[in-house]
């Protein structure tokens, strides 16, 4: 699993570059690097459906970001300025939160099964009943389209709502 660790390191470096670089277009390219390395890691953990969806969504995300930046400005003027009082206060609060979060998180990570040993208590039933009850060979598709179809309906509703929001905000007619 050495390639998984290499991609995790690459992902973290690209994330730090995306946060700290001055050129916003370069930051968006680094965001794309993080998203595509996440997609490749989905393939390493045997999740082909997730990898396909992540690649499509990542392409769309980068295109939307680039469209916004090309219509506005691609220089981040706030980098290199002196830190304001509010910013120093928020960094202090962030440091407090990180300490609190890590103390809670380390405990809950110890409760989790170790990497590579999933317990699969619930999944056993879905794997056993997936093919006979729904007739689909792909268990993930069985779960999202048959056993949990109402969740997928909710997802479609959220997507539709956000499309309505984008259309309402971008409209030209009726705007003064």
């Amino acid at each position: 699993m050495i390639e998984l660790y290499l991609f995790l390191i690459f992902m973290l470096i690209a994330a730090i570059i995306a946060i700290e670089i001055q050129d916003l277009l370069a930051a968006i390219i680094s965001l794309g690097a993080v998203g595509f390395s996440v997609a490749i890691m989905f393939i390493f953990v045997h999740a082909p459906d997730l990898a396909i969806v992540q690649i499509v969504v990542e392409v769309l995300t980068v295109v939307i970001f680039v469209a916004v930046v090309l219509r506005t400005t691609h220089v981040d003027e706030t980098i290199g300025k002196k830190l304001s009082g509010t910013q120093i206060l928020s960094i202090v609060f962030y440091a407090f939160f990180v300490i609190l979060f890590l103390t809670v998180m380390i405990r809950s990570l110890q409760e989790l099964p170790a990497f590579g040993n999933a317990t699969m208590k619930v999944a056993k039933e879905y794997i056993k009943l997936g093919l006979p009850q729904t007739g689909g060979a792909n268990i993930v598709a069985d779960v999202i389209l048959d056993f949990r179809a109402l969740d997928t309906l909710g997802e479609a509703t959220v997507l539709f709502t956000s499309v309505i929001g984008v259309a309402a905000l971008m409209r030209k007619v009726g705007r003064k």
Partner: peptide
């Protein structure tokens, strides 16, 4: 799979 698609919607908005 559901969460990825919802993330796209929130990012676009």
């Amino acid at each position: 799979l559901t969460a990825i698609v919802i993330a796209l919607g929130t990012t676009a908005l």
